[in-house]
Amino acid sequence: MHENRPGTARERLLAAALDLFAEHGVSGTSLQMIADRLGVTKAAVYHQFQSKDDIVLAVIDPALSRLGPIADHAEAQRGHVARRDTVLHGVVDLVVEFRKVSATLSFDPVVMRLVRAHPALRSLQRIRRLLGGTAPDPGSRVRMAVLSGGLMMAGADPAVIRLDDEDYRDHLLAAARRILVR
């Protein structure tokens, strides 16, 4: 198994891949480009990962793997408002921590394909339910779509890119709460 500490060959490879994905998209980034960015051979990249999909999964998995614990923690709360607030805090913290990943990969077709097949998709559906996103009325569905899309895109907007994490988190939470108010 590969080490997962910052500074390891694996972490440097993932950082280089994320930078290249931001510049060229996942489909426009080759394993050779990643190797060239790192100054290593393509064989060295293959030593760490068997495919580009494996690299993409390794980039997004730390965020996706946190969805289940967020939903678990929220489901343990008493009352709809407490569950919703717990989910909002958890998801906003996730967006803040992984803003570069989200801004870079949220709407990439390769990433969307991989996420649709990822086990974390069930946790994402749980989170939507906890936020009230399964209500049958059109207004609830639209609010959930605005909230989901807004949170994913917030990290990519140049107007907020320089906000420090605390301000960014506070403003995301406030905006999310306003969107969810019925």
Rank of each mutant, 00 (worst) to 15 (best):
G132L: 09
H89C: 03
A117K: 10
H89M: 08
T86S: 14
D54R: 15
L124Y: 08
S140P: 03
A174P: 05
L173M: 12
R143I: 05
D164R: 06
P119M: 04
G79H: 10
L131M: 09
D72L: 06
S65H: 04
G149A: 13
V45Q: 04
A145D: 00
H171P: 11
I161H: 15
E75L: 11
A44G: 03
L57F: 09
H73T: 15
H80S: 15
S106I: 03
S65Q: 09
A71S: 02
L172C: 02
E75I: 05
F49S: 08
V45F: 08
A120E: 04
G155E: 09
S51F: 13
H47F: 15
R84M: 13
D61Q: 06
P158E: 08
L114H: 10
L163T: 06
L173K: 09
G150A: 08
S65R: 13
R141D: 05
V40D: 05
A174L: 10
L57N: 01
Y168E: 01
V160S: 15
I179M: 13
L124T: 12
T134K: 05
S51A: 10
D53L: 04
A145P: 00
R126G: 04
A135L: 07
L180M: 11
K100Q: 15
D137P: 11
R169T: 07
A175I: 05
D157I: 14
P138D: 15
P69R: 05
G132P: 01
D54C: 07
I127F: 13
T134N: 13
L88T: 00
A44N: 09
R128C: 11
S65I: 14
A103T: 09
K42H: 02
Q77W: 08
R143Q: 00
G133Q: 08
I179H: 02
G155N: 04
H80R: 15
D108I: 07
A159W: 12
D85T: 03
F98C: 00
G90M: 06
L180C: 06
R169P: 07
S106T: 01
L67N: 11
H118E: 01
G133E: 06
A44H: 11
V92F: 11
R162G: 05
D85E: 10
D170E: 07
A154T: 07
R113S: 13
R83Y: 02
M112L: 09
L105D: 04
D72I: 01
A135S: 00
T86V: 04
F107S: 00
D165G: 12
D53F: 13
E97I: 11
A135F: 04
L38F: 04
Q77M: 14
P62V: 11
R66N: 08
V56F: 14
R122P: 08
T104M: 01
P136A: 13
T86R: 14
L173E: 10
L121W: 02
R129C: 14
V160L: 15
V92D: 08
G150S: 01
Q77D: 03
V92N: 09
L64D: 05
L172R: 04
R177C: 06
V146L: 09
G155A: 01
D164G: 01
S51E: 03
A76M: 03
S102W: 15
D108Y: 01
D164W: 04
